[in-house]
C-alpha cells in the first residue's frame, strides 16, 4: 500500500512540483531535498486529518467560471474601495455588519468563499456559525444589504454549491 508510506500522494506530488518550480531546477540535489520537504509536508497533513475532498473533472467548467467572475469582481471592487478611500468623509461612514444565511455547508466550499470574500476589498468575512448556517460580514459600503446578499448568493454561492456539493 502506497498510503502506508505516503499518506497523501497528491499532496506529495504537488509539494514536490512546487519546490522544483520555486528553485527552477531539476538538479538531483533539489529533487532529493524537495522530496524530503514534500514527505514531511504530507505527514504533517496526517496530524491535521482533513476531511476527504474529491477531485472531479466535471467540476472544472464551473470552477473556471467562478475564477473569471472573481477576477472581474476583485478588479471592480478595488476601484470602488479606492474611490471610497479618496472620496469625501461622508462616503467613508457607510460601513457596517450584516448577516447572511448560507445554503452552502461544504467545508472546502466555505473556505473558498472565505478567500473570495476577504480578497475582495469592501467585504470582510468575520464569523461563520455552522449551527445556524449564518455568516457575519463586515461591508465597507453598506447602503443596501439585500443587494450584497443577492450578489454573494447568486454570483458565488450557486457556483460553489455546483462545484463542491
Amino acid at each position: 500500500m502506497i498510503r502506508r508510506v505516503l499518506p497523501h500522494p497528491f499532496l506529495f506530488v504537488a509539494l514536490l512540483v512546487m519546490w522544483l518550480m520555486l528553485n527552477q531546477s531539476l538538479a538531483p540535489g533539489t529533487f532529493v531535498f524537495g522530496a524530503l520537504v514534500a514527505f514531511g509536508g504530507s505527514w504533517a497533513m496526517v496530524a491535521l486529518d482533513p476531511p476527504r475532498a474529491r477531485l472531479r473533472l466535471s467540476r472544472l467548467p464551473p470552477a473556471l467560471r467562478l475564477a473569471g467572475r472573481v477576477l472581474v469582481d476583485v478588479f471592480r471592487s478595488n476601484l470602488a474601495v479606492a474611490r471610497i478611500i479618496l472620496g469625501g468623509a461622508e462616503r467613508r461612514t457607510h460601513s457596517g455588519f450584516m448577516t447572511l444565511r448560507l445554503d452552502l455547508t461544504d467545508r472546502y466550499g466555505l473556505a473558498v468563499l472565505a478567500i473570495i470574500m476577504t480578497c475582495t476589498p469592501g467585504t470582510q468575512w468575520v464569523h461563520y456559525d455552522p449551527a445556524r448556517g449564518t455568516l457575519l460580514l463586515h461591508v465597507l459600503d453598506l447602503v443596501d444589504e439585500r443587494q450584497w446578499a443577492n450578489l454573494i448568493k447568486q454570483r458565488y454561492e450557486t457556483l460553489l454549491r455546483e462545484i463542491f456539493e
Binding site: A82, S95, T120, P121, H138, L140
Partner: peptide, 17 residues
C-alpha cells in the same frame, strides 16, 4: 478610514490589484 473594521478593507487593495 474611521474605524478598525473599515481599515481591514484597505490593505486588500495592495494584496490584490
Amino acid at each position: 478610514l474611521p474605524d478598525f473594521y473599515s481599515r481591514l478593507h484597505a490593505p486588500s487593495l495592495g494584496a490584490t490589484l
